[in-house]
Amino acid sequence: MKRERGYKSFIAVNLLPTLILYAVFYIYPFLKTFYVSLFSWRGLSKNMKFIGFANFAKLFKDPIIWKATKNNLFFLFWGTIVIFLFSLFFSTVMARKKFKEMGFYRIVFFFPNMLSIIVVGLIWKFIYNPSFGILNTVMEFLGLGKYIKVWLGDPSTVMGALVVPQAWMYIGFYMLLFFAAMQNIPEELYESAKLDGAGEIRQLFSITIPLIWETMRTAFVFFVINAFSKTFNLVFVVTRGGPSRSSELLTTYLYQNAFQFSDFGYATAIGVYLFVILFVISFIVLKFTKAETYEY
């Protein structure tokens, strides 16, 4: 099909304004993070002093960085286990069982994704509240009174207590992703598996999971970013990194350095460190979970 001269200008008009905005407000700040991390720069003063990798040297000696890294990995590890187990279970049930009320569960389970993490955080703060929180009330009712703790105020329980709202919020999202992928699996595969005598669990591991493997990998990479990035809001609202930094994250520490201590050089160095960790984890995960793609 012949296209007139307007073709090229049409592409430019549609593409360029957006691309320029994106370059200025997204790509440029991203790259500048790497640049600023090489400077000593306090506040909005003009004098940036080039100090090479000194910020990184400081970073590796900073015990709070290690604590924060450990907490981020805690979120990643337990978040993955809880969220992927539940979402996989729910999506499998929804794809394989034909309950009348399945649509209702789907709508309800996804709903927390509509809420602000602020709302989720505050609601869970009330659930954990030591004087009137429902968790302790229920535990007492069940005779588990002696296990009651100040969940968010105790360094040994605070991280676990923060993973739960995180899971509560995101299980529905991953459930929907997996469910969508499962819808594409042809029913005949299950039919013939049944004829061969394979039970539901067998079908899950030899049909469902291999066929949605690509979706699961993509979802997992997104979850890695999520565990390092979106957890910021939750922690910032619920505990502010406390008690005594026991729930500090790399992101909350970055934010504190940037906007409380005005130490832009160190804050961006934390950002670069965070990015490298993310990159390495995603790379390793994608490399080691590669499987042959199934055509169906």
């Binding site: 200025v24 407000f25 997204y26 440029y28 700040p29 991203f30 500048k32 993070t33 600023v36 909005l44 990479v221 997104f222 970013i225 390092f228 990035s229 910021f232 992101t251 970055l254 934010y255 940037a258 906007f259 832009f264 804050a267 961006t268 950002g271 965070l274 990015f275 993310l278 995603s282």
Partner: peptide, 15 residues
Amino acid sequence: LYVPTILGIVPIFLL
């Protein structure tokens, strides 16, 4: 899609 939102926050602020 793979960049955490908080990463560029200092340069964006300065910008």
